[in-house]
Design a protein around this nucleic acid. Structure first.
Lengths: 218, 218
DNA sequence: AATTAAATTTAGACAAATCTAAAAATTTGT
DNA sequence: ACAAATTTTTAGATTTGTCTAAATTTAATT
């Protein structure tokens, strides 16, 4: 598989192509910052290779092989992200770009050994699950901070927005995965939240709260 | 720089292009398993980019920028090789292929942090020197085992042939970098050697001895 | 249901990197 | 030094992945 083919497969997966829902060429083009006509060409090619189904004018969906391929690429991407953070002291807003390159390195041994070096991590630095060698992964039971009731406590386990600006903002406010958060109060007016975290009280906007995942304490 | 451009620069450097000697397009083509006409095209392109001098029908040599570029790629390649051996338990005959891919990853921070993780190694798993960030490196003072006199002792510090078959052969015979070797006797007939290593006596062919580097004890 | 709007595909072109076959330059051999 | 052999370059074609602009299909609107 070429790098370009891999990027298409990965994008289609992220757009929800793991079930039979058809993904439009337009949606893919937009996500990949390319033109719909280019997507059409590639869709044909990947369909012929058996990685996806392509219905003219309707869109594409991944075949079983396509899904397996996507999970393998995502596994590599997320393992490399863990490596960058845990072994090379990258911050979580710096890893994506480099992992985009590293995910295309072809060596099964490399990725298995990397997995071992990192002690078989289950989640990447943004809280996203890392598929196992055989393509299984557990999506964590989690909710957006903006959607949990007042006076409940949860642990911060992930981010929805993984943009550099958002992650840097979180760093600046000492919001990190693993922190325990309690919702003290919700402002009716702008849906901003008063929360307690690491002993301190904090006021955060709805925009922030709707991009932070927490796992409720059981 | 594209991956292809980087491979050309690296190959030209290895063919001796770090001085003003002109390297023929044929030699480059043979080394890279491509056609001379392809080399001509790329030579033009790289000359226009200022990475090498190209004299029609004469050959190419790297500019200062070209040499710097080559050293940067070689630095990456060798650091990744060390990583694979030291951190991921690859054997020295497995690293080349993967390092060929990893050397093209673009991130200065990545390579600097990797250098740090590995404790700033000076040599790769085959004994070849690793250029520093600013392109300096020390070629070790070494000699081929086949060329040192009888009854001298040396430490095995490198291999000339880095092919998988040769490296596997060395493994099988417990010959590794760092071992102390003493030449006991040379056979006039076939120039094979009787050596002492790790307490044991060994008989090795000229072919082996002329692909092993040793550093004489001082 | 007809027309307009939007999405998608087709057709043709382009850049990068390569190749083959023919032409040109250089080197070699006598 | 001149012809033959070798090396190198040129010219034109190919593949991959992309693009633009035009044509076609599907969806939306009244």
């Amino acid at each position: 598989m070429t790098r370009s083919e891999e990027n298409y497969i990965k994008t289609i997966f992220h757009l929800g192509g793991n079930d039979t829902t058809l993904i439009s060429t337009n949606a893919i083009a937009e996500q990949m910052e390319t033109k719909p006509s280019s997507v059409t060409d590639m869709a044909r090619k990947l369909a012929k290779k058996g990685l996806l189904y392509y219905k003219k004018y309707q869109g594409v969906s991944l075949t079983d092989i396509g899904v397996k391929t996507a999970l393998s690429i995502i596994r590599k991407h997320r393992l490399w992200e863990v490596f960058l953070v845990k072994k090379l002291d990258f911050s979580w807003d710096e890893v994506h770009e480099v992992a985009e390159q590293l995910e295309h390195i072809k060596s099964e041994k490399l990725i298995d050994k990397l997995d071992e070096l990192l002690d078989f991590p289950k989640y990447d630095p943004h809280g996203d699950p890392i598929p196992s060698k055989d393509g299984k992964f557990m999506e964590r039971d989690k909710q957006l901070l903006s959607e949990i009731p007042i006076n409940t406590k949860g642990v911060c386990v992930g981010v929805k927005d993984t943009s550099s600006t958002f992650l840097k903002f979180l760093d600046k406010n000492n919001i990190a995965l693993g922190n325990t958060i309690e919702v003290l109060e919700k402002e009716e007016f702008d849906q901003s939240l008063h929360i307690q975290m690491s002993g301190k009280e904090l006021h955060i906007s709805h925009q922030i709260a709707s991009n932070l995942y927490v796992k409720l304490n059981d």
